[in-house]
Design a protein around this nucleic acid. Structure first.
Lengths: 245, 245
DNA sequence: AAGTGGTCTAGACCACAAA
DNA sequence: TTGTGGTCTAGACCACTTG
């Protein structure tokens, strides 16, 4: 049975207030890394609530990486080790729209073939697999915004072979069609050379930001893409606020 | 009272199995974006468990971004919009150690001053605030690995003024001393010029990867740092597996 | 051996949005 | 108005780890 209890006074639910309280003590330095925080039963008494409510709060703080829990020993503030941040990788169209510029894309090269040795170096597809190679230029305000060089594993996305990619760019089309379970991104800086410099309309040697993404569905590779952003203007932004739950 | 129930057969707790089941249906495409998934009371019946157990599972799937919940309407598979990935930003020392190379760092410039106009452009510190500007070169195997240009707000970290930064690099020292609540990272590509090219021992114009990080504690700025990695070799890696909870 | 966290139950009341 | 999710309770048993 549920007894009468006081109404929630302030910012939302009780377990959120517990989270906020503990988080504040950790972030202020009052509870430094390594320090044991009160046991569940102590917090239960302190907040006058059921154990499950405290447990819910602490579980979320574990997920946020602020605390660690060990049976019999207790709950401890984690030692900060490596920072992690959530990197948003938007669709190029959305990215251009966010700048308030008109967007356009065009397929500049297309080739359906059996995977070559070079293809297999980019992406672990079977030697005899059919792949679709696409090069796509994305424009913002009639100027080159980025160049996309993509390889699609046609056994994972057979429909791609017949798709003209008129309405949707290859990336947007794939994200709607093929569910993926794993992705890996690599970000690096390169100098634009030859065809790339030409397509992006920059001088050879111009530094460019490169985002390479591989996507799998289960164990099967789906696509590999290399997006090249010209010049020093483009920025990827990642933010992290610990315990934003 | 708790009735007898079957022992947990397979991979862990019941709510984890519920998570795995639903996740599998979403990732396989069986439940496409926008589709309503069973109500809590249906899942409760299906798994023969209490409502709270289902709720716990669904709450975690919300946190993972796989589903959205609307009162009275139900729970729906989210539309994929922008991909997000967790970017690990390790300490430089750990980064070099991971390559199996000997690590060393050296402070190459140090200046304590009141914030200049240029400093305030980098970071929103008060006009009369004391700041510590540091330039630090990190070496791997006796060769320049990256160049760190840092500004520390001395009102947030007063001890930094007297710290020689011999044992720990400024970044490692700060992470241990000053709790931070918010960080923002910007990643871009630039060409090495002048002093930077000299310090990194590369030709002028060499493309470099730049990671700029600003850190706050509450509303107060703590530090701003710009880390420049020379050449085309360095890569930042980010991975994403949806719903790894 | 004892005490911690991990998980689960069978209820309950409430807030909110859709019909 | 109605039915959904949001939150909470007061128990319970179990697993693990440490002393």
């Amino acid at each position: 049975m549920t007894e009468a209890r006081e109404p929630r006074p302030e910012g939302g639910s009780l377990h959120r207030r517990i989270i906020a309280d503990i988080e504040a003590r950790i972030l202020s330095g009052e509870w430094p890394p390594g320090r044991r925080i009160p046991f569940e039963h102590e917090l239960t008494a302190q907040y006058g609530c059921a154990r499950m409510t405290v447990s819910k709060a602490l579980t979320q703080l574990v997920a946020a990486g602020l605390i660690e829990r060990r049976r019999k020993a207790g709950t401890f503030v984690t030692q900060p080790h490596s920072q992690s941040a959530v990197l948003e990788i938007p669709d190029v169209k959305a990215e251009v729209a966010a700048l308030g510029l008109p967007y356009r894309f065009a397929i500049v090269a297309r080739s359906k073939r059996r995977a070559t040795r070079a293809d297999r170096a980019r992406f672990a597809v079977a030697a005899d697999a059919w792949v679709l190679a696409l090069t796509c230029r994305h424009d913002a305000a009639q100027r080159p915004f980025c160049l996309e060089d993509r390889l699609i594993n046609l056994s994972a996305a057979p429909d791609a072979a017949e798709e003209p990619f008129v309405e949707l760019s290859p990336g947007a089309w794939l994200v709607r069609r093929v569910p993926w379970t794993r992705a890996e991104h690599r970000i690096s800086a390169v100098a634009a050379r030859g065809d790339v410099a030409l397509a992006l309309n920059v001088a050879s040697g111009t530094p460019c930001l490169v985002v390479e993404r591989r996507t799998w569905s289960g164990e099967a590779p789906v696509t590999q893409v290399r997006v090249i952003y010209p010049g020093e203007a483009h920025e990827l932004v990642a933010r992290f606020t610990p315990g934003q739950s």
